[in-house]
Computed example of a mutant assay.
Amino acid sequence: MLKLHGAERHDHWEKVPASDLVVTSYALLRRDIEKYLEYEFAVAVLDEAQHIKNRSTQNAVAAKKIRAQHKLVLTGTPIENSVADLWSIMDFLMPGYLSNHKAFREHYELPISRGGPDGELAQLKLRRKLHPFLLRRLKREVAKDLPEKIQRVAHSTLSKDQYLVYKELLESSRRKISDMVAAQGFNRSRMQIFKTLLRLRQTCCHLELLKLPDLKSEFPSAKMDLFFELVDEALDARHRILVFSQFTSMLAILRRELEARELKYCYLDGATKERQSIVRQFNTDRSIPVFLISLKAGGSGLNLTGADMVIHYDPWWNPAVEDQATDRAHRIGQKNTVYSVKLITKDTVEEKVLQMQQRKQGVISATLEKEGEFMQALTWNDVQELLSL
């Protein structure tokens, strides 16, 4: 086996023809694609193939240039945004099998996204085309001894202070966005829309995330109160907890509160250097009951079977990412039932996001039984629903 990584990889290109297996990363494949074009491989295998789901990225463009007699892909999330992800993956495996992207969008993606009889027919046709080339294995099929995973939503409310800020932000943003869309069109207004949705979601988490200089709140987060109620109950039952948030600033607040309560914890975000040593510390030291983790940095690639409870402090647009995060604990090696709790603030954008995810998840489930994110496919009707609270 030849591993081509690091600066010294350039000293080993002459070993490629004599090697049975050549391993590299997507980032280095992009950089070295011209060297790889000098060879034809018997088999090209892409692991975590969702890295090529976007047809226009450098990952996808480079991977599709590889010359190989046979091609395989492995992925736990073949669809993350929409069924268009499948087109890009199949375009690597069998170029032209799902036609060109324009035709695929017209005959499959758009009808499926619109729903109705035409959408159901398009789903059926796509499922039939994919079925001969898809081998799917569910965790319950390959890890039959794995304990149960119990998932639930825990609802909080806005505190009085949060409600006043949320209401003012919502009303002012709704007017501003409507005027902007009328003047500039929806696509040119996307950045302002995403910024508004971000601010609303931050308000649901904790008012401190907004960094408003003149805001002094006695009750900045009803959700955090609920969170520590759940933590206290879990610790009484001797559970150990993974806590995921997309906001490192929210994790910083939770760190501060844990320290005030003299609770030991581990912490991991994108800036963490010794990831595996911290993971090992948590898994082996049962005196540490809580692990705070940035969703983006620690939502995949870690084995954290030392925990048997997962709390998602704030909902991410893509439930498949949340599922992967939960599966840091619910994986081979776990001996206990895993409890996964998603914290959602009632009568806010979080509840609307959850409802829209569930609808879009149904569309993807009917195609491939997998979850999906909707941020990039967000429509003006979606935005109006999100801001209709």
Rank of each mutant, 00 (worst) to 15 (best):
L2A: 03
L4I: 09
G6Q: 08
A7Q: 11
R9H: 03
V16R: 03
P17D: 03
T24E: 10
S25F: 10
D32T: 08
V43Q: 11
L46T: 04
D47A: 07
K53V: 10
S56V: 13
Q58W: 01
A60K: 06
K64G: 05
L74N: 01
G76S: 05
G76P: 01
T77P: 04
E80D: 12
N81W: 04
W87C: 02
W87N: 00
L93C: 11
N100E: 12
A103K: 06
A103F: 03
F104G: 01
P111C: 00
P117C: 07
R128F: 08
P132I: 08
F133W: 13
K149S: 08
V153A: 01
H155N: 15
S156F: 08
T157I: 13
Q162M: 08
V165A: 04
V165T: 07
L169M: 13
S173T: 04
R174W: 03
K176A: 11
I177N: 02
A183H: 12
Q184K: 15
F186W: 09
F186A: 09
R190S: 05
R190D: 01
Q192M: 09
I193F: 02
K195W: 05
T196F: 03
C205V: 15
H206I: 08
H206F: 07
S217V: 09
P220G: 08
S221L: 02
A222Y: 06
L226K: 14
F228D: 14
E229C: 13
L230I: 06
D232G: 02
D232V: 02
L235I: 15
A237T: 14
R238Q: 15
I241C: 09
Q246C: 13
S249K: 15
I253R: 13
L254T: 12
R256C: 15
L263I: 15
C266M: 07
L268S: 14
D269Q: 05
A271P: 05
T272M: 01
E274C: 04
S277R: 12
R280P: 10
Q281Y: 07
N283M: 06
T284P: 02
V290C: 00
L302D: 07
A307Y: 04
E322I: 10
D323N: 14
G333L: 11
Q334K: 11
T337W: 09
S340G: 06
I344F: 01
L354C: 02
L354W: 01
L354A: 09
Q355A: 15
K360T: 00
E369W: 08
F374D: 03
M375W: 06
A377P: 02
W380Q: 11
E385V: 10
